[in-house]
Amino acid sequence: MQTALVQESALSFRAVSKRFGSRMAVDRLDLEVGRGEVFGFLGPNGAGKTTTMRMALGLIKPTSGCVEVLGRDVQLEGRRVLPHVGPLVETPALYPHLSGRTNLRIFGAELGRVSAARIESLLELTALDERQDDRVSSYSLGMRQRLGLAVALLHDPELLILDEPANGLDPAGIREIRALLRQLRDQGKTVFLSSHVLGEVGRVCDRVAILRQGALVYSGRVDALLSEAGYFEVKVAEVDSALAWIREQAWGRSARLDKDGTIVSPSPSGRGRELNSTLSAAGFIPDAIGPRQRDLEAVFLELTEGRP
């Protein structure tokens, strides 16, 4: 498990546990989300992601430990700090018998400082301006999701806590959300999002945390998670003999064959250049050599289900 030191935290979990009866939903979670970063929170269904997010929003009290939002204990100072947080927890919570615009007006009125112009701009941003006067009950899941996001953004929050924001969106909608998240990051906002669309997480998040059965199994940079340090992918014509030759070398005993016929091998010096020259000298001219990059889905499954 890799953890990065974060200088200034927007969100931090300190030994946080939550127990529901005999079931431990979250187990001694330690996590830091730095200000201004887009942080991905991954885990299979039932891993404790939503419980963790609810604890960050003060909706659920931790059994033990402490959750700090923007530097303050959310249980003790929630009323002071939560107005700076934009939440989207699970399915968007909306009034289905009211229009999209009226929903924004009602939630805006509860916050007390949202202008009509802000509502207009959010309807435009979430591409709901054409259906703003229709009842939410007639909206598709994707439209509801976008309206839920608009509700979360109403008061221009410093920190966004988004549970599956891409849920129910079509590819175009997912791309729009991705662009929106990048735009928010550029504005200096902190985004803590959970998602099961792993490709999206890889594209927009700086760092990720992976939860399995309530316990943290990884926290760190996405590129560090995906790269298999010191390993290279080698494409060569004589796969079997090349692999056998590499394995005979002292530096190459851990080399293996990937499913697609690519050799995954270390290098004598840790650099691809030496691997290329060594193989060429042995008579195996590589067609291509590149650093080994793992698929996020494979890493996710490996960490959450123990698959190789």
Partner: peptide, 18 residues
């Protein structure tokens, strides 16, 4: 009851309303 049934209570409380 509608705040619970629609789930809007979590939006209201998560915004810092006591």
């Amino acid at each position: 009851g509608m705040e619970y049934s629609f789930g809007t209570i979590r939006v209201i409380l998560a915004r810092g309303t006591g």
